[in-house]
Computed example of a mutant assay.
Amino acid sequence: MPWFLYLIECADGSIYTGIATDVAARFDKHSTGKGARYTRSRKPVRVLASFELAGRSEASRAEYRVKRLSAAEKRALIAGALTLDAVMPQSQAPDADAVPAG
């Protein structure tokens, strides 16, 4: 089942980042005050972007990384000037030139 990373614009201009399997239903929860504490006080306005990910684990890792971006970086991600792949750490492949210890 796919999971989504989503970014919501709040009434104060801030951007909330979350994950869900159904972004529209989750936005409705935020709008009715039954979502995150952050959106209860800042009133969500609209979904700015969503990104489909393979599963909950990948979505949680992406959420962790995106929440640490600056507001300007989040806006660049929303605009497509920054990709989600660029935000995620690259897996460490073994170095072919490395000499084994021992």
Rank of each mutant, 00 (worst) to 15 (best):
residue 2 P to M: 12
residue 3 W to A: 11
residue 4 F to D: 02
residue 5 L to P: 02
residue 5 L to R: 03
residue 6 Y to S: 00
residue 6 Y to G: 01
residue 6 Y to W: 00
residue 7 L to V: 06
residue 7 L to A: 11
residue 8 I to M: 11
residue 8 I to L: 14
residue 8 I to K: 07
residue 8 I to P: 06
residue 8 I to S: 07
residue 11 A to D: 15
residue 11 A to T: 13
residue 11 A to M: 14
residue 13 G to L: 12
residue 14 S to R: 15
residue 16 Y to T: 04
residue 17 T to M: 12
residue 18 G to P: 10
residue 19 I to W: 04
residue 20 A to N: 04
residue 20 A to P: 03
residue 21 T to W: 03
residue 22 D to L: 08
residue 22 D to R: 13
residue 23 V to T: 09
residue 23 V to W: 06
residue 24 A to I: 04
residue 26 R to V: 08
residue 28 D to C: 01
residue 29 K to H: 08
residue 31 S to T: 13
residue 32 T to G: 10
residue 33 G to S: 03
residue 35 G to H: 15
residue 35 G to L: 15
residue 36 A to V: 09
residue 37 R to W: 12
residue 38 Y to K: 13
residue 38 Y to F: 15
residue 39 T to S: 09
residue 40 R to Y: 02
residue 42 R to G: 08
residue 44 P to D: 05
residue 46 R to W: 10
residue 46 R to E: 14
residue 51 F to M: 14
residue 51 F to T: 13
residue 52 E to A: 04
residue 53 L to A: 05
residue 53 L to I: 06
residue 55 G to R: 03
residue 55 G to Q: 04
residue 55 G to L: 01
residue 57 S to F: 04
residue 57 S to D: 11
residue 58 E to G: 02
residue 58 E to S: 07
residue 59 A to C: 08
residue 61 R to I: 12
residue 61 R to W: 09
residue 61 R to Y: 09
residue 62 A to P: 05
residue 63 E to F: 08
residue 63 E to L: 10
residue 64 Y to R: 13
residue 65 R to F: 05
residue 65 R to S: 08
residue 65 R to M: 12
residue 66 V to W: 04
residue 67 K to I: 08
residue 67 K to Y: 01
residue 68 R to G: 15
residue 69 L to H: 08
residue 69 L to G: 06
residue 71 A to S: 11
residue 72 A to Y: 00
residue 73 E to W: 06
residue 74 K to M: 12
residue 74 K to E: 07
residue 74 K to Y: 05
residue 74 K to T: 06
residue 75 R to A: 03
residue 76 A to Q: 10
residue 78 I to F: 00
residue 78 I to N: 00
residue 78 I to G: 00
residue 80 G to A: 12
residue 81 A to H: 15
residue 81 A to R: 15
residue 81 A to G: 15
residue 81 A to W: 13
residue 85 D to I: 00
residue 85 D to T: 01
residue 85 D to R: 01
residue 86 A to Q: 15
residue 88 M to F: 11
residue 89 P to V: 02
residue 90 Q to H: 03
residue 91 S to Y: 06
residue 92 Q to I: 02
residue 93 A to Y: 01
residue 95 D to E: 11
residue 96 A to K: 07
residue 98 A to Y: 08
residue 98 A to I: 05
residue 99 V to R: 04
residue 99 V to I: 10
residue 102 G to E: 04
